[in-house]
Amino acid sequence: MDFLQPTSWTDALAARAERPDAVAIAGGTDVMVDLNFDRRRPGALLDLGRVPELREWAAEDGWVRLGAGVPYSRIIEELAIQLPGLAMASRTVGSPQIRIRATVGGNLGSASPAGDAHPPLLAAGAVVEVQSAARGARRIPAEEFYTGVKRNALAPDELIAAVLVPTAAGPQQFCKVGTRNAMVIAVSAFACALHPDRKTVGTGIGSAAPTPRRAPDAEDFLAGELQAAGLWDSRGRLPEELARAFGERVAAAASPIDDVRGSAAYRRHSLSVMARRAVTWAWNDLREAA
């Protein structure tokens, strides 16, 4: 096994192209488990930890360009205002030791349906920027990035450069069900984002379908009902029945399975409860801000 350690993004892309047998490693919190347990024996490790470009984030016009290698601990400390949903989800990842190493790029690379970064990225309308030496950069909306259980849209010669996340224009929430407050792979998870500027709603469902996914019907339904009742402008109280109906539509968008962590029925039920609560919290935050 070789250990490739590029110190620039250009060199990293060149190494990715030259060594199809290499596995990229960022924080290592997924890759090292596989190596330690003999589940993977790649021809090389491509360490991205020395590529400075990946460890930076920058605020661009209405967006945050989050380098793929920024760890959760820094998202929590540095981006809680701009990206509240992602920061909330980041707080629930693993343990302090894990959050210091693990990255959003690694979460996207693994593309587990249980990855906690995915629901808030979907709810916010994030775009994944990937790049190859041969073809340059391309941008993939998060919802098109997840292509199957632990599969993503990355081509073999590409690396994830960054995630472009719209700066929050309104409140965002994230909820996750698990057996503890730490070190938990989500039984089910839900994120929502209110976009009062556009009068739209964003959602993201985790651990309740082969891939992380949005609940488009629930989004349109809620945005439309809020519009019909003039609530976007009046900022009146969110009717309980509306929150409940939203929750039911979120649950209907899932296609969960039974597994060791929970049953499909429980996943669906917990999603409807989380969605109802999360959207109520978010709406109350919006009212308070007014």
Binding site: L35, G94, R101
Partner: peptide, 28 residues
């Protein structure tokens, strides 16, 4: 050896990490 127990915790450049999840080469 999977990040769950923390008994391998060390400082890496001043931050506590699970050393079982850091590739040796990443510590160069």
């Amino acid at each position: 050896e999977q990040g769950e127990c923390g008994s391998c915790t060390v400082y890496l450049d001043g931050e506590p990490v699970c050393s079982c999840l850091v590739a040796a080469g990443q510590a160069i």
